[in-house]
Design a protein around this nucleic acid. Structure first.
Lengths: 133, 133
DNA sequence: ATGGGTGTCCTACCCCGATAGGACACCCGT
DNA sequence: ACGGGTGTCCTATCGGGGTAGGACACCCAT
């Protein structure tokens, strides 16, 4: 699992990381039992303070997405799939709706909006061979 | 022009206000010469500090969207339409794309995404009797 | 000229999230 | 037993953005 932070995104780093895990589990790119990168390793990789990663992992543990094995590592929990499916669907739907309403407010026609959406879908599916880059 | 703040949105209040003006101009719900609500009045209406509104207006003036007439008020600038059309299109496209990519990452199919988008469009068009088609 | 409206600017304070650096408890291979 | 990996916790500190309150300059109707 590869992580990436977008410094221009409106959401803070810790939330971006948490979302990426939630979405990966929801999309079954990660399965229960999978080990996550260590706090320190991931922090070094994405150039962030270890505390920031730790906070994300802690929140996910609170939600039941992750399980911590002290001295060993963090692992995707058994019930993670169910939890993440619900959470991801809710979050994604909300953000999508917000973006669409914004587009409407900006005067875009439904036609234009759907064109943009289709383009974005295509852009996502094309370049990614579904594993590591 | 009616303003509204969403406290749960990821973007700060001042940016929300600025966006609402940009989008209103882009969608021609506001035209050059129109007067904006006064800093203090709008601040009271949306329950925010006057400085927050002032900051939004100042940023819009910097972009050429608004013109300040000291002691009189803030007005939509002559070149506002052109500026806002570009800015709004860029911002909206970016946020829409971000939301769609997120949805893809969360495992939604293109089919599901388009359904959500259509629903959001419909939800927006229904309650609002669109000024200029 | 006056008073009330306008935008502008300034200083202080505060909250939240990220940063920095350290200390501790745990697990496991050696 | 040891050492290096793991997560956890703690105390600062910093910075952005919003808040609070005030002071000022300007325009205009009265």
């Amino acid at each position: 699992m590869h992580f990436e932070l977008d410094p221009r995104a409106p959401t803070p780093p810790s939330e971006q990381l948490a979302d990426q895990v939630r979405f990966a589990v929801a999309a079954e790119r990660m399965a229960p039992g999978d080990r996550l990168p260590s706090v320190r390793a991931l922090a070094a990789e994405v150039r962030v303070n270890p505390n920031t990663v730790s906070r994300a992992w802690r929140e996910l543990e609170r939600e039941g997405v992750l399980e911590s094995r002290r001295g060993d590592g963090m692992f995707v929990a058994a019930k993670a799939l169910a939890v993440c499916r619900k959470a991801a669907a809710r979050v994604v739907a909300e953000r999508l709706e917000r973006a669409v309403l914004e587009a409407c407010a900006a005067g875009l026609t439904n036609q234009e909006i759907e064109t943009l959406v289709r383009a974005a879908c295509a852009a996502d599916l094309a370049p990614r061979p579904r594993k590591s880059a």
